[in-house]
Structures are given as C-alpha cells and as structure tokens.
Design a protein around this nucleic acid. Structure first.
Lengths: 197, 197
DNA sequence: ATCCATTGCTACACCAGTGTAGTAATTCCG
DNA sequence: CGGAATTACTACACTGGTGTAGCAATGGAT
C-alpha cells in the first residue's frame, strides 16, 4: 500500500510549507519535540522532501527564525516613538504598550517562540535574537533618555528593566487563559512611568 | 576488557551522586541533553546503576527539582522582609536586591536552571518552578502593599513586574562575563522604588 | 582466608530519529 | 496522447537512547 503522493510544489512553496509545519509543531509541542521526522509528519510529506528544502534541522530552524524575526520586527515598526511628546506624560506610553500587547495576542504563533524560548541548539540563533533585543533596547534607552533623564540617569539599565517587563507581560498574555487584561498591565506600567517624571 | 568498578555506595549516597551528575549535565548542556545515559556517563557509572537509584528520567528530575528547590528557597529565606520600615525608603530594598544578586553569582549551579528557561525543559519542572514563583510573587505583593499602596494600587501586577526585573537581573549576572555590576542594577531599581513613594 | 550477599557490569532486544540511494508516480510539453 | 523530466516515496544502514536479565567483582562477616 503505497502512500498517496503529496502535491508537487516549487522549492519556494515547499520551504514555506515546511516552515509552517515546523512552527506548528513548536507552538503545539514545544522545541523538545521538533525533528525532521515530526516536521515531515506535520506537513504530510516524507523526510526526503524536507531534506530537499533544507539541509537539516539546524538550517531549517534558522530559516524559520529569519522569517519569524522579520514578521516580528514588522509588527514592532512604528510602535516605539523617537521621543516622548513633553505634554503627554503617560498617554503615549500607554497606547504603545497596549499596541504591543495587542500584537502579541493577535499573532501568538509569531511571538510565542520569541518570548517563551531561547533556541538552545545553535549558538548563532540565540545570538541573533539577543542582537535584535539589543536593538530594541537601544531604542527604548533613547526614549528613556528623552523623557526620564533626571529620574533615571542610567538609561541602559532602565531599558533592560523596561524590556524585561514588556516581555513578561507578553508571556502572561500567551498563557491559556491569559492571566490579566492588557489594559490592566499597561495601566500599572504607565502609572509607574508617570510617577517618575 | 572489563571496565573498572565504580565504588560501591549506599543507595542514599548513590542518589546524591546521580542528582549531582544530572545537575552538571543540565547546567552544561541544557535539559535537552539530559538522559539516563548522559547522567550515567557523567557520574562514571552504568545505566543499570542509575536505574537502581531512580525509576527513570521523570522521577530523577523530580527528585532533583525537590533538592534544588529547597536549596533555592533556603537562599531566599529572610531576603524578603514582611513589611517595609517606614523610615527607610530605598535602603532596605537596595540591600535585599544586592543580597539576592549575590546569591545568584555565588551559586550559579542552583540558579541557572531556574532563571534561564532552557530548550526542552520538561513540563513538570516548569510547572513546579512556576508554582514557587507564584509564592515569591505573593510575598512581593504583600511587600508592595505595605509600602506602595497609593502609588501602585494593583499590587498583583506590580509584583509581576518586580519579579520579572529581578529575574532579568539574575540572568544578566549569569552571562559570561556579567554585563553589569550588581550595585549598578540595584541602584536603578532602588531609585525607581524611591521615586514611587 | 574464604564465603556469599551485595552491588555494579555486560549484553541484548527494542524504539525513534537521521541521512541517502534507488525507485515510482506525476506532470508538462512536444 | 505519450514519453522525458521532475518530484515524491520506499527502504536501508546507522546512531543513540531505553529498560532488563543475567553474570561477575567486591568487601564485610565468619
């Protein structure tokens, strides 16, 4: 009994399909369960087809990371302002925080692997995620400098704190069911920021 | 060529040895690499000996978790006060934060598996750690209520924020080399707490 | 010194994933 | 419509982990 042939796809479409399947496995079963075999099963194809798309699990996960990283950064575009408008103490922060949390609940497939995991396998991968974090943190640092220079002179450490809190809020939203309303978390954070001016 | 016999140990000593080996593997290679085989290799014994100590990987990891949880909680004992002395706004916080960070750098074997969620951490382990986190968070919540009730009425969310920051500071200390001085991080956090009173 | 109970080791059968060489089905194009 | 060219599948050898039955070394009691 020969198995039914999967539809033939161009290499580009195949790669998309494989990445979709890998992401599905990761979100459903966690990183521990990801394997070429599991991805093939998920996609309804056989291992050799997966190998025709990527040279192994490492390159596959790296490609997935590339794709998801682009999606994540696209969602962050424009969320972080360059400076704080002086007349609007907590308002803008509140809106930005809520927009970020909205992005997380809207597209959990993208955010779950970023927020709840460090890719333990290839060092390269972890480094790249951390590099992106560093970039975001730099923007946050500038922002803090523009609005909180007197109360928080160490903007670098302050940016670490802020990003840690934002990421933690994100993970809380990914719990099932979400523990708190986005507005509730944003309110407390905005309150703190306001108090610091 | 028969391998050399490992020293005979009582069941209790054997269990300690096995847990030590497992912890070593986890800290060095991550949870993804832990197996009965890896633990046996690390301890310089054979698999059947590991099986004589624990009934499999699950029970072994659970026992390790028990042991490390006790060690972690012991180190936290007394770090968190019940209430804040009214006359000492940021001073106590500063000392407590530095004490906590000192514990992390002193005993990284205990804290690394807790602070850095690794690739492939088993569900049981994660759940248990999360339960303990909840307990700590509750204490922090009480503390915030006793000192910051007006500025931070949502003590539950505030406790989440505080713990997220403290844990992030911990992970920064576990980097090699540590990114910041403990005092530097503590200073910024203490400054924020002071500003909120 | 020598038992022999205790404790560790070897060896086996089994499972699940890897990577690939060779074969078969499917398209597309003449 | 029929035969390449393309694309997917099968099958195999290999690796590394699991759990256990049975054998062998050790070392304390006699």
């Amino acid at each position: 009994m020969r198995r039914q042939y999967a539809p033939r796809l161009s290499i580009a479409d195949r790669r998309e399909q494989v990445l979709d399947a890998a992401l599905q496995v990761i979100v459903r079963d966690g990183y521990a369960k990801v394997s070429i075999e599991a991805v093939a099963r998920e996609a309804g194809i056989t291992r050799p087809v997966v190998y025709s798309a990527y040279d192994g699990l490492g390159p596959l996960l790296l490609a997935l990371l590339d794709r998801q990283q682009i999606r994540a950064i696209e969602q962050l575009e424009g969320l972080i302002p360059d400076t704080l408008s002086p007349g609007d103490p907590g308002g803008f922060a509140l809106r930005a925080i809520e927009a970020w949390m909205n992005a997380v609940v809207t597209d959990p497939m993208t955010w779950r692997p970023i927020l709840t995991q460090q890719y333990g396998t290839p060092e390269v991968v972890r480094d790249r995620i951390e590099a992106t974090r560093g970039h975001i943190r730099q923007q946050l640092s500038n922002l803090i400098f523009s609005g909180y220079a007197e109360s928080l002179p160490d903007t670098e450490v302050a940016a670490h704190m802020l990003l840690a809190v934002l990421e933690h809020f994100g993970t809380l939203l990914l719990e099932d069911p979400p523990r708190y309303e986005p507005a509730r978390m944003a309110a407390t954070l905005a309150r703190m920021l306001t108090a610091l001016r």
